[in-house]
């Protein structure tokens, strides 16, 4: 397949790279994790504040509803990893944690809207992997307390 450099670095990607959404660090977050891609040295940290509600389902069982109330990322790296993470933060804002957990790699990659070389897929997924690991740690900790 033939495509051009301009396709890969199309406007929406460069926009997210140059003007990252939800950039920064949340103080006292519920979820916080950072990791790097050893291949290229890209680093991404993600912090999340949750909105937690106790609700009752139709059978009257109590359930905890957790939503992403606020999410911020920081780090450094290539345009693909930074833009993809910026898009991811917009995507998951307000989502239920259990729905975030159901997300697949492709749900994140398709935000970019371009075909990716296999080696760049890791760049595109770095932010998602950090978020997943953060949620995993958060749930492990919560269970341990209970």
């Amino acid at each position: 397949m033939e495509f051009f450099a301009e396709d890969m670095y199309r406007e929406n990607i460069m926009d997210h790279f140059k003007n990252p959404r939800n950039h920064g660090i949340i103080k006292n977050p519920d979820i916080g994790f950072a990791d790097n891609n050893p291949l290229c040295g890209d680093e991404i940290g993600i912090t999340v504040k949750l909105k937690t509600e106790k609700i009752k389902d139709k059978n009257g069982n109590e359930e905890i509803k957790e939503e992403i109330a606020e999410i911020k990322f920081n780090g450094k790296g290539c345009a693909i990893s930074q833009a993809s993470t910026s898009m991811l933060t917009e995507q998951v804002m307000g989502m239920k944690l259990k729905d975030v957990k159901k997300m697949k790699n492709n749900d994140v990659i398709k935000n970019l809207g371009i075909p990716l070389q296999p080696i760049r897929v890791k760049c595109a997924l770095l932010g998602f992997k950090v978020l997943e690991a953060g949620i995993f740690l958060y749930e492990g900790k919560n269970k341990a307390i209970k």
């Binding site: 450099a5 670095y9 290229c40 040295g41 790296g77 693909i80 760049r120």
Partner: peptide, 28 residues
């Protein structure tokens, strides 16, 4: 501009170069 972005765009021009730490992370 990140070295990987440079290498990706070079690739689109048919030019194979390396972008990364070149197996020398302490030097990086």
């Amino acid at each position: 501009i990140h070295a990987h972005d440079v290498a990706s765009i070079f690739d689109q021009h048919g030019i194979a170069i390396r972008g990364g730490h070149h197996c020398a992370m302490p030097l990086m």
